[in-house]
Design a protein around this nucleic acid. Structure first.
Lengths: 239, 239
DNA sequence: AACAACTATACGGACGATCGTCTATATTTC
DNA sequence: GAAATATAGACGATCGTCCGTATAGTTGTT
């Protein structure tokens, strides 16, 4: 496919455009590239992402893609940022309508597992893949991945703390430990779905996520349950 | 470093040699290559593993390494097999001295977390990395990774079933779901240790692993506990 | 025991393909 | 006019693979 020099890579402006200092045409082209690069990177990894294959996929010259981002590392960082935006849109934003604390943790879990079961990324959870891919080598890309994951863990931890403060969770719950366990469920669910083509892991994780929230309820539980003193549920996660 | 043509890549025979149909000299050389390739692949991934870099690391010509395995894919498969052998040696074998069921699950957990905290692989748990790396693309390599992981899950599941049969775990425990949760703890522990350089995840996982085994004890618990009816412990994993 | 035939290694060098990057140039946009 | 965008083409580096050749190790024959 040959195009006359300097027609834009996309015609229609996307709704995902970020307001940076650059011009509108390039912004749209960058967004269009990133929409493909997140998919490719979710399958082949951030390192397996190549400018040539990406350009061929879009139908554009290699140097055009390169020029838009300046270097491969910048492309990788932009791809990571785009994936983060998608994750926030898919998992965090839907949960913001629920009250902070237990309810939002439930909502985040629901949204996360829906997202893991969906095909938002053709190669599975982008950040799960990027985490294990980048964890061995130093550099700004690894730091960026770690930063995003810290954000995610912090969201879980903050809501656990809020739940404790609101007496929705027992006071002796360690927020960091509980956030670790909740996060572990999603990562393993993504692993089982992607590698073994098995969706039951997501259901196991859903059950275990609920059990974790139910099992550690404080003596005075939230609105939903009886006001009488309640023994903590044991919850083995098998529905 | 120049070597006269056809001196073996290693002088001393290793104790890890497999008895295949090939000659002894090449077998030793292959083993020597694999000792390095598992380390490189644990850092850079199975796909990031390159014959050239591997040969340079050992101090051998590129074509020598290639000839020993025939193709890069064969090298990758052999590297995976070598990593599997190391994992078995580090995690499974030490637990075989414990009785099947709860005791072996405890032993496997201990060995696994010791292994995850160690530097057996410089890039972290080989199979955790290979799982998320390969899960997007079809082929024999992905199948091999999936096969090894199925083995691992099956080991957990078999011991959970044995524990149920021996009344060490409650009869209503779903073995597959519990194996999923146990596996999730290790994968997340490896993730936190490698990406965030934080060993506390391993301690969270240890506690949660113990809590999982303790919390789902059957009414008639094992030798260690009182014979009186015992309420299942709730166990939030915070020590 | 000696020798030849043969196979498995190991090396050196080359192949085409693809990688990221750079330069030059044309066009659009501000 | 200046800055940004897009194309075309080339660069050296590295990728996996292959070929030719030399040697070591084994096997078979005498």
């Amino acid at each position: 496919m040959r195009r006359s020099p300097n027609t834009p890579l996309v015609e229609e402006p996307s709704q995902l455009e970020l307001r940076d200092g650059r011009r509108a045409r390039g912004r749209r082209s960058r967004t269009a590239v990133l929409e493909r690069s997140v998919q490719m990177a979710s399958r082949d990894g951030l390192e397996g992402l190549t400018i040539g294959a990406l350009a061929a996929d879009i139908g554009v010259h290699k140097s055009s893609v390169h020029a838009l981002f300046g270097s491969k590392e910048e492309l990788q960082l932009a791809t990571l940022a785009a994936a983060r935006a998608i994750l926030i849109d898919q998992v965090i934003v839907p949960a913001l309508s629920s009250d902070e604390g237990i309810r939002r943790l439930e909502a985040v879990g629901d949204a996360w597992f829906d997202y893991l079961a969906s095909d938002v990324f053709s190669g599975g959870c982008f950040l799960c893949a990027a985490s294990t891919e980048m964890d061995g080598r130093p550099g700004p890309l690894r730091d960026a991945v770690a930063s995003v994951m810290r954000e995610w863990i912090a969201v879980l931890g903050a809501n656990i703390e809020a739940a404790i403060a609101a007496d929705e969770l027992r006071a002796d719950v360690d927020p960091a430990a509980m956030a670790f366990r909740l996060n572990a469920l999603g990562m393993a669910a993504n692993w089982q779905r992607q590698l073994l083509n098995d969706l039951t892991g997501i259901e196991y994780a859903r059950s275990a996520w609920r059990a974790e929230l139910q099992g550690l309820r404080a003596r005075r539980p939230g609105r939903r349950r009886s006001r009488r003193a309640l023994r903590p549920q044991e919850g083995d996660g098998t529905s």
